[in-house]
C-alpha cells in the first residue's frame, strides 16, 4: 500500500531531522543557563549543567533525548536514564508536552481560521481574475493578490490594529479570549497566503482552459462560465491543493510575528525563542513537530489528488 510505505519512509526522515536540528542548536554559542546575573560561584553553574547533563558530549545528549542511555549506578547495576525530550531548560516548571499541549491548539485554531480566510478570499479572487482575463477586474485583482504577498506581516498587523481596533473600535486590540479576538490575527496571518492562492488558482484556471478536454467540452456547446466552473475548477484546484500541504504546516505551527503583535499564546514564538535561547530540547521537539505535520499533510494532499484528478494514481 502506497501510503503505508510513505509513512514508514517518514521514520528515517524524522531521525535525520532530529539529529540535524540537535547538532544545529548545539552549535550556536551560549547555553540555556547564561544569565544576566552571574551565579554566585562557578561551581553553581557547573552543578546546574551537570544536573541537566549538558556537560556530556553532544552525541550522548542526543541519545539521552530519546531515552537511550543506560548508566552504571553506584551499586554496579545498569539502570535506564529517563529521556530528556520532555524537559525544557528555560521553562523548568513545565513539561514540553504541556507547553505544546496548551499552545499548539491555539496556533492550530488561528492557523485554520487563517487558512479559511486565505481560501475564502484567494479562490474567488483567482477565479474572477482568470475568468475575466485581460480586463480591468483581472488587473485590479491580480494587483491585489500580488500586493498581499508583498507586505510584511509585521506591517499588516499593526495597521489592522490601528484601523479596526484603535480608530474604529470594532475589534479588540490583542489577546485571545473570544471569537472577536481571532478575526484580526487570522486576517493578518492569512493575507499573504490568500494572495498566493489567488495567483496559483488563476494560473491553474488558465492552464486548464487550454487543455484538451475543455476544448472538447466547448465543442459540445456548453456555456463558457458553466464550463469553467464544471471542469476547469477541478483541474485548476490541483496546484492549490499541493501548495496547501506546506502552507498548512506553516499556518498550524503558528507565527512569531502575529503571536507577538496580538499577544496570542501560540506555539510560533517558541520556534524562534527556543533557538535564540538555546533551549535545545524544545527547539528539536518543535522541529520534529513541524516535520511530522508536514509529512501528514503532504500525505493528505496526495490522497486528495487521487480523488480530484482521476489521472493520478499511486501504486
Amino acid at each position: 500500500m502506497y501510503f503505508a510505505r510513505r509513512l514508514t519512509f517518514a521514520i528515517p526522515l524524522l531521525l535525520v531531522i532530529s539529529a540535524l536540528a540537535f547538532a544545529l542548536v548545539h552549535l550556536a554559542p551560549g547555553g540555556p543557563f547564561d544569565r544576566e546575573r552571574a551565579p554566585a560561584s562557578p561551581e553553581i553553574e557547573r552543578n546546574l549543567k551537570a544536573a541537566y547533563h549538558l556537560d556530556e558530549p553532544v552525541w550522548k545528549q542526543y541519545l539521552r533525548f530519546f531515552g537511550l542511555v543506560w548508566q552504571k549506578g553506584a551499586t554496579g547495576h545498569w539502570h535506564h536514564e529517563p529521556a530528556s525530550f520532555n524537559i525544557s531548560y528555560k521553562y523548568r516548571s513545565h513539561r514540553v508536552s504541556d507547553i505544546i499541549g496548551q499552545a499548539l491548539p491555539v496556533s492550530m485554531t488561528l492557523g485554520a481560521l487563517a487558512f479559511g480566510f486565505a481560501m475564502g478570499v484567494g479562490l474567488p479572487l483567482g477565479f474572477i481574475t482568470a475568468a475575466r482575463r485581460g480586463s480591468w477586474p483581472d488587473y485590479a485583482g491580480s494587483f491585489l493578490a500580488i500586493l498581499a504577498v508583498c507586505v510584511p506581516g509585521f506591517v499588516v498587523g499593526p495597521l489592522l490594529i490601528l484601523v479596526f481596533s484603535v480608530k474604529l473600535h470594532w475589534l479588540p486590540v490583542a489577546l485571545w479570549e473570544s471569537p472577536a479576538h481571532m478575526i484580526l490575527p487570522a486576517i493578518a496571518l492569512g493575507l499573504f497566503f490568500s494572495g498566493k492562492i489567488a495567483r496559483l488558482f488563476r494560473e491553474g484556471m488558465l492552464t486548464a482552459a487550454q487543455s484538451e478536454f475543455i476544448a472538447a467540452a466547448r465543442a459540445k456547446g456548453l456555456g463558457e462560465n458553466l464550463l469553467l466552473l464544471k471542469h476547469a475548477v477541478r483541474i485548476a484546484i490541483l496546484p492549490v491543493v499541493s501548495f496547501s500541504g506546506p502552507m498548512l504546516a506553516d499556518l498550524l505551527t503558528g507565527s512569531f510575528v502575529i503571536e507577538n503583535i496580538f499577544q496570542i499564546p501560540g506555539i510560533g514564538v517558541f520556534f524562534i525563542n527556543s533557538a535564540l535561547n538555546s533551549d535545545y530540547t524544545v527547539a528539536v521537539d518543535l522541529a520534529l513537530l513541524y516535520a511530522i505535520l508536514l509529512v501528514v499533510l503532504n500525505l493528505i494532499v496526495d490522497f486528495s489528488y487521487t480523488r480530484l484528478d482521476p489521472r493520478v494514481k499511486y501504486e
Partner: peptide, 16 residues
C-alpha cells in the same frame, strides 16, 4: 507576559 511596548500601550489604552 508581554514584550512589545506597542501592544502594551494598545491594551492599556483600550482598558484591557
Amino acid at each position: 507576559p508581554l514584550g512589545s511596548p506597542d501592544t502594551a500601550l494598545n491594551l492599556y489604552e483600550n482598558a484591557q
